[in-house]
Design a protein around this nucleic acid. Structure first.
Lengths: 112, 112
DNA sequence: ATTATAAGATCTATATAAAGACCAATTCTG
DNA sequence: CAGAATTGGTCTTTATATAGATCTTATAAT
């Protein structure tokens, strides 16, 4: 980040991250895992896990997803096979869609 | 990151991030937004948006969620009010759960 | 009530994610 | 087709997220 950017987040994003964190904490409790244990399994530090559970938005998405996966949280309400299937479908659909979005209509050159 | 940590991600996490990226791309297309426009609205660089759409796991979760929100993707299949409600419920439940997970049963001191 | 353990908090060093600028390759649209 | 616009890379700089260590506080189980 060259210039210090002040990021703002919508209520929706904040709540979504907070919810994900709460779900993780709940699942960790149910599975009787300490923060250290779960962090170790996810290959992250305990501090990072703490921030994820608190819904911190500055965490890397991979770490959050990995932890969620480890405690059995189903992202997109889908299990592994469903996720793969859904992903494949989306990719196929994307292949058909236009590769770029054209915004400005060309200037009509009717002056000659 | 003091020592260079090689992070590994499960298939599930990778697919989930890839799916989120694909959904964003699809929604951006439908809304006829260029990458630059969406990036500007989200307050991020075009490069970061590109990585998010590709499902890069090293992106910050806040940026990804914010972009998703901007194109109308419903996280946890919930709209704003549902999300808030769900979050409140989770917090209430967490308040009742034990604050810490005890693993090792204390050594019984029956020698006196 | 004790006390070991887990969780919370803070600090430092460092690897790296991200912005910004640039150029190359694609791709719509007239 | 043409040519502008969009997208895809690459490179550099810099702010910062993270690991790791340490200390404090809270808590659960005896």
């Amino acid at each position: 980040m060259p210039k210090s950017i002040i990021r703002t987040y919508s209520r929706y994003s904040r709540d979504a991250a907070a919810l994900l964190g709460a779900l993780i904490r709940e699942a960790r409790n149910e599975r009787k895992l300490t923060a250290q244990e779960l962090a170790d399994r996810a290959g992250i530090s305990r501090g990072l896990l703490q921030r994820i559970e608190k819904g911190n938005l500055k965490c890397e998405i991979g770490a959050a997803f990995e932890v969620a996966t480890l405690v059995g949280i189903k992202l997109f309400d889908a299990d592994e096979s469903m996720l793969t299937k859904y992903l494949t479908q989306k990719k196929e659909k994307l292949a058909l869609l236009p590769k770029s979005v054209r915004k400005k209509p060309r200037v009509v050159r009717d002056d000659f």
